[in-house]
Design a protein around this nucleic acid. Sequence first.
DNA 1: TGAACATATTTACATTTGTTCATATGTATA
DNA 2: TATACATATGAACAAATGTAAATATGTTCA
Lengths: 117, 117
Amino acid sequence: MTELTDKKKMTRIRTALPPDEELYDLAEVFKVFGDQTRVKIMYSILKGELCVAEIADVLDMTQSAISHQLRILKNAKLVKSRRDGKVIYYSLDDDHVAQILQIGTEHLEEQNEKGEE
Amino acid sequence: MTELTDKKKMTRIRTALPPDEELYDLAEVFKVFGDQTRVKIMYSILKGELCVAEIADVLDMTQSAISHQLRILKNAKLVKSRRDGKVIYYSLDDDHVAQILQIGTEHLEEQNEKGEE
DNA sequence: TGAACATATTTACATTTGTTCATATGTATA
DNA sequence: TATACATATGAACAAATGTAAATATGTTCA
């Protein structure tokens, strides 16, 4: 007599999952990574801080658009800011941000290699 | 005579960015990570493969919903599948997927610690 | 082959998300 | 304090995204 699914095993796996709240937060963080403009902003400040106007110049977008995305990035704690007079400089908040960008890029490269075979 | 932005510096940074197509693809991958259900699915199969019905059982969701999300995960090459009779088993596609989940979780923990201070 | 089962797909809908334009806030300095 | 400058915000709209219900596909085995 076999069951469709091994209830005990499924319960074990379900119990081992991180709490819902943590998984929710995790998804929220990745959601912030999931936009081309924001990825570009993060890459722009990967090597050093830039102010809003500079980022807008690099990406050739309006100051308003950049400011909006920077707020989202800052709320998610992916970037931090520092004021110097009337200029506000933005940089990546912690090392994990660069790491995630890096591993994501590696993943893409690996998948591309696989695809070429 | 100072400029608002140092055009040469901005051009240098702009030129150093990965090509647009790559940044687009990167954002697309993270977009797939940016959903609670998909994060849960990936965590469910972190330690070993499961079939659709089992995942549906673990997450207490319909088979249809899980199947939809699995297709999105598979298109993004985040999970792979293997058929055994009529059952299809899903597992993480490559090690980067687990790494990204891991670093994302670390990021959250670090930010939570900062917040508690 | 046909019935039963596991998974996939289609369609339609509601919600979320990104962008733009206009305007507001806050800071430095004359 | 008035002005100029750098950045932030609000509202409105278009586009992308997730979900649910119904149905289709593909596989096994009697």
